[in-house]
Structure formats: structure tokens, C-alpha cells
Amino acid sequence: MNRVRAAVRRWQLEAYGFLLPLLLVLILLAAYPLVDGVWTSFTSRAVAKPGQFIGFANFARLMDDPVYWMALRNSVVLTVGIVAAKLVAGLAAAVLLTQPFPGRNFIRALAFLPWAVPGLVAVLGWRWMFDDQAGVLNALLLGSGLVSFPVDWLSDPEVALWSIAIAAAWQGLPFFIMMFVGGMMTIPPELYEAAAIDGAGAWSRFRTITIPSILDVIAITVMLSSIWTFNSFHTVYVLTGGGPANRTHILPTLAYQYGLQRNELGQGAAVLVSVMPIFIGIIVLLTRRMLREKGVR
């Protein structure tokens, strides 16, 4: 009995030896900052000022702050809109790229290419194309006579949200296509053949076979992408910086503005902490799901 207990203990100790570096990273660089960030959000901490505990004052200020609500609205609208667009376009593109045609692998590689472009470079490219004065998009639209005035891609607040969505969708779409192509390739062709014999049309086969078969893939892709899209700081930071009139802020850029541009670290942290419960919820859900898929319990 003693020997068994000793063995168990030895196993545990050894495992934690292997895990030590990982645990250091998780505890010191993820968990600790997270806790510290929550604490900071309850203080009046500012740049070069330690500040003190002020309870919910930072959050109360946010509740009264129309810019905060605007940013929250933008974050939600953009996330839902962009993810939905990527979902529809991703499914369509995945169907296309699973058709048999010559050079399919090469075409797939090209279609996935935006994934390999650093996110910052991608938005810089888009900002240059959206440029009101020398941008190629306005030149094309004006040249073809589709518009008679330049489109204010980034300075009309309504248009700017669309521009942000386009640039974000461009960067994010390849991930959806890859995931869906991967999922669709595992569907046995016999299923489709049987359905075709039964007289099911293309749309009906897509609905009754494709979608149900990759439902899990879709769910995970959508959840992962929602987290990433919601926090796509660089897209807004580079394209509009939150302007004009603070109309295109999302929460991370607002936190940056409050925390670093206005030097109020506590207020900035509060912006981030205010949405943490939502993310913890999504992360718990998704973690359970991904662990189940992988069979690790």
C-alpha cells in the first residue's frame, strides 16, 4: 500500500516537472496579469501615479459615457456582422474549392494566402486602398462612373464601419475556408451519391448532408472567430483610430485611448474588465467542446 502511494506521488511530481515551464507561463504571464488587471480596474491608477482603490467608480463613469456604449455597440455589431459574412462566404468558397477541377490544390493555396499576411500589413494595405485622395478603390469607382464623388471610406462614420468590416473579413475568411474545406473533405462521397439517386438537388444535398456533417466544425470556427474578431484591435487602430467623433471605436481601441493616450490606466482596464464575463463564458463553453473533440478529459 505504501509503495503504491509512493509511486503515485512520484508520478505526480515528475509530471509537474515537465509542466513547470508551462505553468510558470500560465500563472505569471496570464493568470497574474488577469487578476492584476481586474484589481487595476478598481483603482485610480494613472501613468506615473500609483492611484488608490476607488470601488466601482471607473465602471460608473463608463455607464455614463456615451462613447463606451457606442464602442460596445460597434464591437457587437462588427463581430456579428463580420462573423456572419465569413460564415456564408466561407461555406460558399469551401463548396467551390471541394469541387473537382484541375489545379485545385494550387487554387486553394492562393485562396488561403491572406492568412499568411501579417494582420497589420493587411490593414495597412487596405488603408492605402481606402485612401480618399490617392486610393485605388475610389479611382476605380470614379473611373467606371459608379460614383460621382469619392467615397469617404474611412471618414464617414457609417461607411467606415463597413470599411473596417471588409478589411477584417479579408483577413479572417481563409481560416473559415480552411476549416470548412477540411470538414467537407471528410464527408464520404457515397452520401452524396445516394442522395443524388434519390433525386435530391444540389441545394438540398448541401442542406441535408453537408451542413449536418460539419456542424461541429462550424460551431467551433464561429466561436473561435468571434473571440478574435471582437478583439481585432489593429484593424480599427490603423484604419480609423476610432474616429471620426469617436464613432468607430471598439472596446480594445477605447481601452487603449483611455489607458495610454489619456494616461488613465485604471479607466482603460475597466473598459476591458467590463466585457470579461462574456469572454469567460464563451471560453468555458468552447474549452469544454474542444477538449471533448480531442478526447482529453
Partner: peptide, 25 residues
């Protein structure tokens, strides 16, 4: 099980939520 869960959770944790506290740390 807890460690496995922590790994996935940390992978999902968005950097944009961490930047101010991680700066201070």
C-alpha cells in the same frame, strides 16, 4: 484535467483583453 482546461482557456484568452495588465506586469 485542470491543466488541460487551463491550456485551452489560455489559448482562447484574447491578447486585447490583457494588454494593460500585462504591460504593468
Amino acid at each position: 484535467a485542470i491543466v488541460a482546461r487551463a491550456i485551452v482557456a489560455a489559448y482562447l484568452l484574447p491578447p486585447a483583453l490583457l494588454f494593460i495588465p500585462l504591460f504593468l506586469v
